[in-house]
Design a protein around this nucleic acid. Structure first.
Lengths: 231, 231
DNA sequence: AACTGTCTTAATGAAATCTTGACGCCCCCC
DNA sequence: GGGGGGCGTCAAGATTTCATTAAGACAGTT
């Protein structure tokens, strides 16, 4: 019987033959699989279905594999094993620094890969109850990891956008005056600069709302301030 | 018998002897424990198992203890007690500003630490989601959130409408003269403009009363002013 | 030095709110 | 019966506030 314990593995690999080979080997071992043929897709899938382990090919067509690695590591605790071709051997040296847990040179033996996967999974965090997430509507806030999701897809926020959003979230349901928000986010000396708020609320709406012109979460209280809809 | 009420305590401390000492003292008192030997690990564990109290050593090897404090405070409401070595005494001054609830200088007596922990836990969230709501008839006023409901549905009020309504609510049951209301809401220089009052009382009635022509809450006192029905 | 991402600032049109005036009603007094 | 004052309603500007876009400033990186 398989010893994989039903782990979900994400394969990010552009070459279809290798994907097919991995699919055969791993499903046979009892792993559940997700596959992505590009870096962008990999990031998207990882955000939607957080994997227990990632197999990442560094030689991707669209964006730099190293960058995928970094962006995954920003929030994903699961182990990442890098697949690297022999002629990319120099890159191997960089991989561990950038957050990979192990690397395997192509071509590789099935047994070796499986062994390294088992090791990585054993060393991994005992996968506690993922996170302290707050859900409102189709938004999910993982405050500890500083991540915001909309319907399972990760939303990128700039530092100030994030700070403003968290401030409103902490007082969800209440009307917050312009002055209060400006003091909290920008500091007391900017408490008159209401146009800062307008710009940043607009950009948050563009990222979080289905219809930014008719917001569901970030509501305007004309003449007073803003309010984050409690539910 | 322990008085800890089964609280979960997270210890973020790199020096193993101190961790061991704390483990002995605290488990003996009936606390449940989580331990982390670095800042990064502390943040991760806190996210996975939200603690009721955090003991944080500021002298950590990987990332600045102050930064750990800030990042915890972004989302964690539980009290945080900072442990600081005597030679880091200057940092103590900054700690409270950055969100610590208390600090203890190493070396410390067990009794003192336990006392401070009890205090912190007692002070934690003394009040739940205290709804400072006032109900009158089928109206509900949540002054903290600046929201007004009529039979569970939210009523939108403009700034002046709201200010007028709150002024009348503060003196509910009493007859308020035109001059008084105008001074309170519009300022002393508009105390003759009784016309303002008529317009805004009318618009409040339209929004709050079942039958604006026969008001139940916003009553006219002919020749004198208005009165908000006490009940 | 160019680049990337972020923040500030300015400018424009749109929306909401406030002010103001006109009109009708009712009651009471002349 | 007529007239006047207090009150309620409506609606048209005038004013303030808001949303959106885009261009410049700035910092950190490559």
């Amino acid at each position: 019987m398989a010893t994989s314990g039903d782990h979900l593995v994400l394969i990010i690999e552009d070459e279809q033959p290798i994907r097919r080979f991995l699919r055969a080997s791993l499903t046979n071992e009892g792993y559940r699989l997700n596959e992505a043929a590009s870096g962008e897709e990999g990031l998207r899938v990882a955000a939607s279905y957080p994997p227990d382990l990632v197999l990442l090919d560094l030689g991707l067509p669209d964006i730099d594999g190293q960058q995928v690695l970094r962006r995954l590591r920003e929030w994903l605790a699961a182990p990442i094993i890098v697949l690297t071709a022999r002629d990319q051997e120099q890159q191997k040296i960089n991989a561990p620094d950038a957050g990979a847990d192990d690397y395997v040179t192509k071509p590789f033996a099935t047994g070796e890969l499986l062994a390294r996967m088992r090791t990585a999974l054993r060393h991994a965090q005992p996968a506690g109850p993922q996170s302290s997430a707050v859900c409102i509507g189709d938004l999910r806030f993982d405050l500890a990891a500083r991540l915001v999701f909309k319907r399972e897809s990760l939303i990128h926020l700039t530092p100030l956008e994030y700070k403003l959003l968290v401030t409103m979230l902490k007082h969800a349901g209440k009307v917050l005056t312009h002055r209060f928000l400006l003091r909290e986010v920008w500091g007391p000396e900017s408490s008159q600069e209401t146009h800062y708020l307008r710009v940043f609320v607009a950009s948050l709406r563009r990222k979080l709302e289905d219809d930014p012109a008719r917001p569901r979460y970030l509501l305007t209280e004309p003449g007073v301030g803003y309010r984050f809809a409690a539910e």
